[in-house]
Amino acid sequence: MEDQEIKPILGAYSLNYFFGEKQVLKDISFELFKGEIITIIGPNASGKSTLLKILSGILPLKEIESAGQVFCQNRLLFKMTPDERARSVVYLSSELQAEFPLTALETVLMGRICHHLHNYVEKQDIARWAMEQCVCWGLRGRFLHTLSGGERQLVNLSRALAQGSRVILLDEALSKMDLHHQTMMGMLLKKLVQKNYSIVLVSHDLNQCLSLADSCVLLLRGEKIAHGQIADIFKESNLKKLYPGASFVLGQNPTNLHPHIFL
């Protein structure tokens, strides 16, 4: 039992990734444990999205196979079949595409494709559970393109839950939400973590990251410049390296005593 707690649920080791000639990721390693929220912070073009896409295996496999090693639940991620991978790690982008008329329920049901289930009732039950977790069961009959950005993200997260993977990678998934939806997502993520889900969070809203995450990785031009508990590495010197032009004061959030950035 003790042993299981210590093993990371997702581990990335010495990831190197090239986009053409340009090296996007330089020797990145980090581990994600059960029930942990880790946030990846860095300026634009620091390789955050690429890192998440590699961790979820959604970039073409031919390109990422040589990038390094990613273990998920003690198995090599790139050696898994696509459906196994989808059941282990799920990636949420900032925008859910809505080129075609799909209802919210149909979208969530797509999360079950990787389970090859043909029992419609069972699928529907899981989709209902997932949508109720995200408080969006009421939207089930609506078409995606009629939903607001926030509602769409809730549907997207339900899809991720329906997929059944325990590791959720959020790529700017909270950025297009209003205050109400942001708070709801925040509460939802904390609830998931208590249920032993693990989350990697990428967001430009640093304060949001700080109030949710346990630890963080600081990325600058594809290099990891610091990694650890938020309280240890969230220092003005580190932030100045990431955002040299910004002026801010690092303080404490009065409501939850997490670090907070005042502009």
């Binding site: 959604i58 459906d83 982008s93 494709i113």
Partner: peptide, 19 residues
Amino acid sequence: LDAFLMGEENASGLGVSVP
């Protein structure tokens, strides 16, 4: 094929062998 409706990246995230 349904998964492809969400775009190729999402299809691959849904566990479909895109190539």
